[in-house]
């Protein structure tokens, strides 16, 4: 019988993606384009929040949107209908975006003419958290109807984000969502995270979040 030999591999599966993400961030800083990755579960209000945010800032910053969907164009059509440059990425069954897919998607946008590109990631709280998209900042949206227990179920997502937007606060009165308990659960996992309470539908709280985004994007663009 053949002798079994051991070959050392010592390789991280994510190494290639992390290299691509790093290259993309370098290019973004040369192009002076701020890339924001928005993640949430389906129905938390990603598209509405993105449109509402752009509505607040479009007089000072030029926006583009990269829409990821497993197999539809509904969101890109909604964004394009508002006159915003949008590219639809069909992930063809993939549950998340990685840096290579984002790099490819950006080919469809004129980065030189854009200050901020927002990625609307695939609606899912698990997979997108594990793959660096090459974005400068990552945001997640948790909507009130989903419940205050989500940090317990999807800890990694809350750990990798710079900002948490708690959306649909206009539903708070109808629900038993405990904002304080939710905040404490999130801060336990990620003490640096910024939390904004918003309603993308009524516009409540969106200005404060938009001001944060504007500051971050402007300081990135100025280098």
């Amino acid at each position: 019988m053949d002798e079994v030999r051991l070959i050392e591999v010592k390789q991280d599966i994510h190494a290639d993606n992390e290299k691509t993400a790093k290259e993309l961030r370098k290019r973004l800083s040369e192009e002076k384009t701020f890339l924001l990755n928005v993640m949430s579960s389906p129905g938390a209000g990603k598209t509405t929040t993105i449109l509402s945010t752009i509505g607040q800032l479009e007089s000072t910053l030029r926006f583009g949107v990269l829409e990821a969907d497993i197999d539809s164009m509904v969101d890109a059509e909604k964004v394009a209908a508002e006159g915003i440059s949008a590219v639809q990425l069909r992930t063809g069954g993939f549950c998340h975006l990685d840096a290579a897919m984002v790099t490819k998607g950006l080919e469809g946008l004129d980065l030189g003419g854009l200050d901020v590109v927002i990625i609307e990631n695939v609606g899912n709280l698990v997979c997108p958290a594990e793959f660096d998209t090459g974005a400068i900042k990552s945001v997640m949206i948790l909507s009130v109807p989903e419940g205050d227990d989500k940090p317990l179920k999807y800890p990694l997502m809350f750990t990798v984000c710079d900002v948490l937007l708690v959306n649909k606060i206009d539903y708070l009165e109808l629900s038993d969502f405990d904002m304080e308990a939710m905040r404490e659960r999130v801060l336990r996992l990620n003490p640096d995270i910024r939390i904004f309470e918003i309603s993308a539908k009524t516009g409540e709280g969106v200005d404060e979040w938009a001001a944060w985004l504007s500051r971050e994007a402007t300081s990135f663009i100025r280098g």
Partner: peptide
């Protein structure tokens, strides 16, 4: 607390003939 590690995917080695 802050996350230090726990999300790696690492191929250590392979046994071959």
């Amino acid at each position: 607390f802050r996350l230090v590690s726990g999300r790696e995917y690492f191929v250590k080695n392979i046994e071959v003939v």
